[in-house]
Structures are given as structure tokens and as C-alpha cells.
């Protein structure tokens, strides 16, 4: 076991899969000799050569097309989109092409591609770097969307994503890259996609969340504990498809739930979680399921992040509304 940051765990997962499967290719803007703008691919080109880990021209759509073409010839591309705000340039390759590759070919061609991309607020990035756009991807039949919140999860989920024979969008929260270390096994291991994890057990209210909001929710749960409320925190880890079973089991136990996301209220996936709970556990609910989300404006100017991004205080306030309904 080693103490790793999330970014180190990600590099470790990439190294593991580059070793494990000669078809794995890592490419993107500045991922080669530079090691990536966040050092996620540090040292990989040195170890595996330019044939396996390489830079691309600066064009996200071209990167997406490269992934399509390479996947059609049996490669297992792991392209990087430098910041997920740039996904609009490559929406067609992901949602219009790879997501449909298996379907369009009647099952003949798979699309084993893993797009890695950083996102997330709280680090004062310029425009179009931090936006939470997972909702766009989660609405796309044919792709899976994974968002880890810990170094341990990041490594296991990334290895699973790369091994998955369908397209995965793997979103890495920038604020979590180096904010803490965790014990991460040095050997390869996997965490199944589509499986949530109960990060904290509780009995009074279920908090369903993902990404940086997992940590805000855990912090809120600690505060709530002091006030006598026991909150169960579920980290979705995969936001599409969501792990209905884990969510419903928890809601049936607690009778109350909130969904916490960093994205705007009209975006993200919270509305889907609420709908699933309403469909499946309405008779267990003591109160409506409320959402903690950002306001429905464009992602804030860097100096306005603090007042705009949801945090543990918002989680506490919303949890209390539900607890005292």
C-alpha cells in the first residue's frame, strides 16, 4: 500500500493498464513529454514510448475521431480532453459516434474508449474549465459516466473503465486531484462500474451525491451528527447508469433523502435520482426528496465561486428541511 493523491492514483491506473494490455493507447494535448497539464500522465511516455503515449494536434474533435478510428482497429484508446468544458468541440465523436458504434453496427463493432477529463470548481480556473457537464453525458444512451471522489476509487474505477468494452466518460474533479492522500494498493484492482458506495452509514436521512460534493456531504454529516441526526452518505461513483439498488435500500431504511450535486439545478443528474426514488420508494418517504445544487446561471467568474458553489452548509440546511418536514 502507498499513500497516493487522486492524481497519482490515476497515473498508477494508466500505468497498470498500459502494462496489462498492448492495445491501450493514451493520447491528448500535452499528455506526452509534458506528462499532462495536471501530471496525470507523468512519466508514461518515457516508460511506454511515443507509440503508446502521444501528443495530438490541438483539436478535440480530431482527438475524438482518432479514438473512433483506433477503436475500429482493435485498439483501446484512452484519450484526454484537457478540460471537460471543451467537450462541446467533441460532442459528436462521443455522443454522435462512439455511443452508437455498437448499436449502429448491430453489435459488430464495440467502442472500448475511455475519455478522461478534469472538471470541477473551487480552484479559480478561467472560463469553461470547471463546468459540471456530466448531465449531458448521462443523457446519452451508449456511454457510461464515472466520477470518482477518492484516490482508491479513482484507480479501481479507471482500470474498470479502460477494461470496459463500451465508451466511458471518466471525469476527474480538479479540487480532489491533490487535496488529500489515501492508502491505495500498488497492484491492479477494479471497482465495478454502476455500483455506488455507502461512504458513511446512517439512519435518519440519505444523502446521495458524487464528486467533490461527497466530501461536503461527509462534512455535513459530521455536523449533523453533533445535532443528533444520523446521515447516510452514498457516493454514486458512476452517475450513468446509477445504482438504483443501493439508493433505494438506503431510502427505505431512512425514509428521507436529499441529492447533492455541484452542477446547476437544471443540469447534473439530481433530478433523475429524485425521479427514481419517487418511482420506487414513495411509500417509504416521510418527506419530499430535495436537491442541493448550484444556481441556474453560467458557471461563476472565478472570484464568485465561493458564493455560488454548493457546500456543506447548504447540505446541512437542506438535510434539516427534510428532517423537520
Amino acid at each position: 500500500m502507498a499513500q497516493m493523491t487522486m492524481i497519482q492514483a490515476i497515473t498508477d491506473a494508466l500505468r497498470s493498464e498500459l502494462r496489462n494490455d498492448p492495445n491501450v493507447l493514451v493520447f491528448g494535448e500535452d499528455v506526452g513529454v509534458n506528462g499532462g497539464v495536471f501530471r496525470a500522465t507523468e512519466g508514461l511516455q518515457q516508460e511506454f514510448g511515443e507509440d503508446r503515449v502521444f501528443d495530438t494536434p490541438l483539436a478535440e474533435s480530431g482527438i475524438g475521431g482518432l479514438a473512433v478510428g483506433l477503436s475500429l482497429q482493435g485498439f483501446r484508446p484512452v484519450p484526454e480532453i484537457q478540460f471537460f468544458g471543451f467537450v462541446f468541440e467533441v460532442m459528436d465523436s462521443i455522443a454522435g459516434q462512439l455511443a452508437r458504434q455498437r448499436y449502429r453496427s448491430g453489435g459488430k463493432f464495440s467502442a472500448p474508449v475511455t475519455f478522461r477529463s478534469p472538471f470541477g470548481g473551487g480552484v479559480h480556473t478561467p472560463d469553461m474549465h470547471a463546468d459540471s457537464l456530466e448531465g449531458l453525458m448521462a443523457q446519452t444512451p451508449g456511454v457510461k459516466v464515472v466520477i470518482p471522489s477518492t484516490p482508491y476509487d479513482a484507480k479501481g474505477l479507471l482500470i474498470s473503465s479502460i477494461r470496459d468494452n463500451d465508451t466511458v466518460v471518466f471525469l476527474e474533479h480538479m479540487k480532489l486531484y491533490r487535496s488529500f492522500r489515501q492508502e491505495v494498493p500498488e497492484e491492479s484492482y477494479t471497482i465495478p462500474l454502476g455500483k455506488a458506495e455507502v461512504k458513511r452509514e446512517g439512519t435518519d436521512v440519505t444523502i446521495v451525491t458524487y464528486g467533490a460534493m461527497v466530501h461536503e456531504s461527509l462534512k455535513a454529516a459530521e455536523e449533523l451528527e453533533k445535532e443528533g441526526f444520523s446521515a447516510e452518505v452514498i457516493d454514486l461513483r458512476t452517475v450513468s447508469p446509477i445504482d438504483i439498488e443501493t439508493i433505494i435500500a438506503s431510502v427505505e431504511k431512512t425514509g428521507r433523502a436529499i441529492v447533492v450535486q455541484e452542477a446547476q439545478k437544471q443540469a447534473g443528474i439530481a433530478a433523475n435520482v429524485v425521479a427514481e426514488i419517487n418511482d420506487r420508494a414513495i411509500l417509504s418517504l416521510e418527506a419530499p426528496v430535495l436537491r442541493v445544487a448550484a444556481p441556474d446561471t453560467v458557471f461563476p467568474f472565478p472570484q464568485a465561486e465561493a458564493v455560488w458553489l454548493p457546500n456543506y452548509k447548504d447540505v446541512i440546511a437542506t438535510a434539516k428541511k427534510v428532517l423537520t418536514f
Binding site: 459528436d92 465523436s93 463493432f109
Partner: peptide
């Protein structure tokens, strides 16, 4: 062959990928 591409231009970026695969193999 691949299916006929409806999104005009998409086949061009994909072709770069298939060609790169041939080069790598």
C-alpha cells in the same frame, strides 16, 4: 468498411484514426 456516415465530416476525423491504427500495426 464502416456504415455510411450521416454526420458530414465525422468520417474524416475517423479516417485519421483508422489510418493511424494501420501505421501502428
Amino acid at each position: 468498411v464502416l456504415h455510411p456516415q450521416i454526420i458530414i465530416g465525422a468520417q474524416y476525423v475517423q479516417t485519421a484514426g483508422v489510418a493511424l491504427a494501420f501505421k501502428k500495426r
